[in-house]
């Protein structure tokens, strides 16, 4: 018990810290940060741990959001059940698509995901328009059940709920990072051929990693779905696909807190400069180029290496002085 607390305590502290920020910051902002950081974690898991870069992440998030949305719009009123439906839809979808996609080499994988996202958008916007009601979207905010302890329409309730979910996801990811599976994922990223020659079935490792990552994206999707009480094809827009890439890279892929830091900075910036965000493509695009040119290391890794750099600088100063 003590050992578990020692391993995972930091995560609880960090997310409790985000909760405490509520004293100073608006709830909507923190909720957005929490959900988007879960979404970014999915991307970061794929890229940082498995070395798979997907330009189609909105698809996996969107499928789950629609799972929840369709359930709550047409069938039930229980938001938790709706979330379950969404997550199951997302996981099943990722399982099937993953079986096909993880066999591809990296360039094909990225492009195939881009295509998937474009098609997904099209399917929900037009092909299934009689069910999804196209761009009008599905509305069910008023239909969702409310409980005294958990009322999704109360921002504070929702924030608490989202933070607990996020902390849970971070704990799972950290646990995986420490497991043999986590090492195998990193090994796939570094040298898949070599891992095969240690006898591992890398196809299955990649498949499971892919499904896990996109289950995380699915959780983000269902959270958005119950938070807004509304879902429309915009959630799967190809135009929004690069956003998570930017945020992921900004925070630093593969690091545990990178997704949280990146999201925080990005959304804060988005809110602050919302005036020029009419042309948000300009901003996101420029950031993407700059982050890549800066060496794709991200804020988190800069923070991690800062103490070491300072120490090196100090040692250097001492030796040059002596």
């Amino acid at each position: 018990m003590m050992r578990l607390l020692k391993t995972y305590g930091t995560i609880l502290l960090v997310f409790a810290g985000v909760g405490v920020l509520r004293l100073a910051l608006p709830g909507a902002f923190l909720i957005h940060v929490t959900i988007f950081s879960i979404y970014t974690m999915a991307f970061s898991f794929l890229m940082g741990r498995l070395g798979l870069v997907s330009f189609g992440q909105p698809a996996y998030m969107g499928i789950a959001a629609y799972g929840t949305g369709l359930y709550l719009h047409y069938f039930g009123t229980n938001p938790l059940l709706g979330m379950m439906v969404g997550i199951i839809a997302g996981v099943a979808f990722a399982g099937v698509i993953g079986g096909l996609f993880v066999r591809l080499s990296s360039s094909y994988f990225t492009l195939a995901n881009l295509a998937l996202c474009a098609i997904g958008f099209f399917v929900f916007q037009r092909a299934l328009v009689h069910i999804t009601r196209g761009d009008t979207g599905l509305w069910y905010l008023g239909r969702m059940e409310r409980w005294p302890l958990l009322n999704f329409r109360d921002p504070d309730h929702f924030l608490t709920f989202a933070l607990i979910v996020a902390a849970g996801i971070w704990i799972v990811v950290k646990g995986l990072d420490r497991s043999v599976f986590g090492a195998a994922c990193l090994a796939v990223k570094a040298n898949e051929r070599k891992l095969q020659f240690l006898g591992y079935n890398t196809y299955r490792i990649k498949w499971l990693g892919f499904v896990m990552a996109n289950s995380i994206a699915a959780v983000a999707g269902t959270l958005y779905a119950v938070y807004f009480g509304f879902v429309s094809p915009a959630i799967m827009d190809v135009l929004r696909a690069p956003e998570v890439v930017v945020v992921g890279l900004l925070g630093g892929v593969g690091s545990l807190y990178g997704p949280l830091i990146g999201t925080f900075v990005y959304i804060a910036m988005q809110d602050l400069v919302s005036a020029i965000f009419v042309y948000w493509e300009l901003v996101v695009g420029t950031m993407l180029v700059l982050v890549m040119m800066a060496g794709e290391r991200g804020i988190a890794s800069l923070l991690e290496s800062a103490p070491r750099l300072l120490r090196m600088r100090a040692r250097h100063d001492r030796s040059s002085a002596g």
């Binding site: 870069v53 330009f55 990296s106 360039s107 990225t110 690069p242 890439v245 890279l249 042309y279 948000w280 493509e281 300009l282 901003v283 996101v284 695009g285 420029t286 950031m287 993407l288 180029v289 890549m292 040119m293 794709e296």
Partner: peptide, 27 residues
């Protein structure tokens, strides 16, 4: 600076360029 760095790198960076361009065209 990209040629040496591999496919992923070019893909992400060029997506950035594309977005900047789209922003400019909208403007």
């Amino acid at each position: 600076r990209i040629y040496e760095k591999g496919v992923m790198f070019s893909m992400i960076t060029s997506y950035g360029v594309l977005l900047v361009g789209i922003g400019a065209i909208k403007y």
